[in-house]
Design a protein around this nucleic acid. Structure first.
Lengths: 144, 144
DNA sequence: TACATTTGTATCGCAAACGATTTAATCTTA
DNA sequence: TAAGATTAAATCGTTTGCGATACAAATGTA
């Protein structure tokens, strides 16, 4: 079989624009999250907890597609910051239950301006946004 | 102004599917790049060099949207692996010139199967691929 | 009850990513 | 040409992200 080297061009890849757009968009979050003293993955954890508090690490793992070896140190840091508590479940001691503190809950009000700020930074129309959103979830749900 | 907390739902964000799809797709690369003994960002650097060898760090930085504090250790590692050389330019000593070695050049043949493997993993049609590609570049080029 | 397996979490080590800062070389311009 | 600005790359410190591994509790099974 003939070797096709032209497929190796940077601008033909899907991975590269995905990776780059993700990094650049995350960078856009940086200044506004800095005011809340949060990193981007910490913000994602809070998004989960604001929707459903008092969950184990597994649930956060499933929602964010992040493994426990990533989440554990992240959650410990957030515990030190006073945003949440980590406590072994009494019923099933394999579970560690994460609960928002008062401080963690209150942060939701301050964070409520974040999505609007970010969509104001986006060059996409409402329709393009929807299309992109749908295509990305298609990839996410397909990937094992 | 009333505070709108519903915008903080995880599945309404654009950032999150972008971030997750990027991570999951990069993970798809892992097994095949492991056979070439490359990480994903190392593969990206090679994509640049296979297109244009003998370039300074700045050019790689511009093409990949990565800063020198990310690239310098990455390139040093690749130098230790014997994939490339790093040498100060004689004309302008601020520049460090990156050149592929024989080994680095030869890797292109082995890597030529990577794009086909990955597009076989993708659930997207040709048309969806193009749409996604275009929307992502719209974001990339818009972001400062 | 003893033993193996599964499940959930944690630990370790490495490679990115990036903000902030530094160093050195080159360019500008007064 | 000397002072200041700019540019290129490197350094430092912190946080992610993940593979590999370890470990304890819970569950299944002989």
């Amino acid at each position: 079989m003939a070797v096709n080297l032209s497929a190796l061009q940077l601008d033909k890849q899907l991975c590269f624009p995905l990776y780059t757009a993700s990094r650049l968009v995350t960078q856009c979050y940086h200044p506004i999250l800095k005011e809340l003293d949060l990193t981007y993955p910490q913000y994602l954890v809070l998004l989960v907890l604001w929707e459903s508090d008092k969950v184990n690490v597994s649930l956060i793992s499933k929602r964010l597609y992040l493994q426990s070896n990533t989440l554990t140190p992240l959650l410990k840091r957030m515990e030190e910051m006073g945003l949440l508590t980590r406590e072994r479940s009494a019923e099933d001691e394999r579970n560690v239950i994460i609960r928002l503190t008062e401080k963690g809950r209150n942060l939701q009000i301050q964070a409520s301006t974040v999505p609007a700020y970010l969509s104001s930074q986006t060059p996409l129309s409402q329709e393009e946004f929807q299309t992109l959103h749908q295509l990305l979830y298609k990839i996410i749900q397909h990937t094992p």
